[in-house]
Design a binder for these strands. Structure first.
Length: 177
DNA sequence: ATTTACCGTGCTT
DNA sequence: AAGCACGGTAAAT
């Protein structure tokens, strides 16, 4: 899987960008797939365009289901084991710190989980697990960048942007496969 | 069992 | 430019 990264703050994101998006079926719900010229820049679960607009403020958003169908089909087909074979490049916009965290997420094997603390240690900032938590939460390409494989160290506390039930469903699907 | 300290980000003042 | 709230964990109370 090809990954393209851009360092930017949230506010600077989306200027002069055209993004096409569409909603498609996925085993655990509807996914909203968004593509820009470089590749896949957003994947939300049951989320609606509102979230997309919040994250790409300055961008021009165009609904075009036909344009996103191919990528969506590929994602549904490759999940859960083979997402790293995705032919569409993944485009990540974030701060240097966020990009580091997201790249760590990409290394997590399907069917396994890591804790926020482990990621903090891996990126050389062992005390920054809270920051890792917020960076994980700001991931824009769910499922492909497996933010759902990051769990709390203690007890069964589950926190997930698209709802805890979805996180469980994703993990269950990957474990079973 | 509660509180404190740690870090990066984005929103508010 | 400074302050605040958020999010997860280990250590101190």
């Amino acid at each position: 899987m090809k990954v393209i990264t851009h360092t930017s703050s949230r506010a600077a994101r989306g200027k002069n960008l055209t993004i096409v998006w569409g909603e498609h079926d996925f085993p655990v719900g509807k996914i909203l797939v968004a593509l820009m010229a470089e590749g896949l820049c957003w994947l939300g679960i049951n989320c609606g365009v509102k979230k997309l607009r919040e994250n790409w403020q300055g961008a021009e958003l165009i609904e075009d289901k036909a344009a996103t169908a191919k990528a969506a089909r590929e994602i549904a087909h490759l999940w859960p084991q083979n997402l790293d074979k995705l032919s569409v490049p993944v485009v990540l916009y974030g701060t240097a710190f966020q990009l580091k965290v997201w790249k760590e997420l990409l290394k997590i094997k399907s069917g396994t989980t890591v804790t926020y603390g482990q990621i903090a240690r891996k990126i050389g900032k062992p005390a920054a697990m809270r920051a890792v938590g917020s960076a994980v939460g700001k991931n824009t390409v769910s499922i492909v960048v497996p933010c759902h494989r990051v769990v709390n160290e203690a007890s069964g506390k589950i926190n997930y942007g698209w709802g805890p039930a979805l996180k469980i469903a994703l993990l269950k699907g990957e474990k079973a496969a």
